[in-house]
Design a protein around this nucleic acid. Structure first.
Lengths: 197, 197
DNA sequence: TATTGTTATACTCTATAACTATA
DNA sequence: TATAGTTATAGAGTATAACAATA
């Protein structure tokens, strides 16, 4: 429906023709892969986040807490949840405060160690998760299924594995030295700037 | 160094074997594509963001402002920057306040309309951008180049275009109905929960 | 002494709404 | 009246550091 004449929103982030002249040593193709992986991930995550926020007024972190505890199938210590979500225990306290205020989690005393707690999710939270997760998985099926054949999906997955491995390796390496920059002629209207995000 | 025997960090997010039983109608393959696109994008963006923050104490949004103005090649009105970065003008004011305090942008009077401003970046900011962008593009080349052949990169790009188009289409559609959930036997240690993020 | 979680504090990003000054 | 930008206010997420209770 509609969108037959105008170009429509350019789906891919592209770099300008002069990119490899402006950035000696850079690879336009690699930069476009990088930028579009970021953008695609962002779009997909945004779909889930928007639904979670619109329908349940849950932040991504709040949803994360519920999903972690629900996925574990049993109450968890705050420290464990914090580790899985990669936040500090201080941040976890305020996330749990929020969720508890809304009746979505309960703090239970730990039966063996009185310093610890066990965090459980309530029936209300379970109801949310039981509605939200199937809907998210349906969207995953619909969006990816509309875009790619099963074969393309398998190929994509293999590439993503390699990219993630390379990214993980790069995490423990120093930032690379760039080979400088040759500013083009003060471009009137900038290229779809690849550093913009 | 080290890590030769242990499996090492699993690069791919995987769903459990019972996934399609727990979520009728869902596609394990599509969910894995979706989750790993999000994760790959996050890892790649994180590399850039960490460098920007570590080396220049710049937030992603702050870098965005500099990159937009630098990319335009000329001073821009705050409203224009706000639109490109998808933030409100109120948020733009505080971003510009921060950057101006640090001597990275200047607010100039607009020559034609005294309600408006023109935001320019300083020599300091230009120095940062001229060092940062080449380094980022070098990383893009290194990480993507280490993971994928040129042919794989082109294939990936084609798939990303299709995924982004499908995601953009899904943005203007209502969230799909999920087909419910069949909770498995209270799994002791949860699966690498796909709803966790 | 070490660990768990909380508190206190602070900072950034973000948004909305009221406001000022222009147009 | 309408627009551009600021101010005021608010709330979320995040972090660090000091702290109390418990081990």
């Amino acid at each position: 429906m509609s969108r037959s004449s105008t170009p429509g929103p350019q789906p891919l982030v592209r770099v300008g023709d002069d990119f490899e002249d402006e950035y000696p040593g850079a690879s336009a193709l690699a930069t476009e892969c990088y930028a579009n992986l970021v953008r695609a991930g962002d779009l997909l995550l945004g779909l889930h986040n928007r639904q979670t926020s619109d329908q349940y007024q849950l932040s991504p972190s709040g949803r994360g807490v519920l999903a972690v505890v629900d996925g574990a199938g049993q109450p968890l210590e705050p420290t464990v949840i914090a580790e899985r979500l990669m936040v500090t225990t201080g941040s976890m306290t305020s996330l749990l405060d929020n969720l508890e205020k809304r009746g979505l989690v309960r703090r239970l005393p730990h039966p063996e160690d009185r310093r610890k707690l066990l965090v459980d999710i309530t029936a209300d939270a379970r109801a949310i998760v039981d509605e939200l997760l199937p809907s998210m998985h349906a969207r995953e099926r619909d969006v990816i299924g509309a875009a790619l054949t099963a074969g393309e999906q398998r190929t994509l997955l293999r590439s993503l594995a390699k990219v993630q491995r390379a990214a993980a390796d790069a995490r423990s390496a120093p930032p690379p030295d760039g080979a400088g920059r040759r500013r083009g002629p003060g471009s009137e209207d900038g290229p779809p700037n690849p550093g913009g995000n």
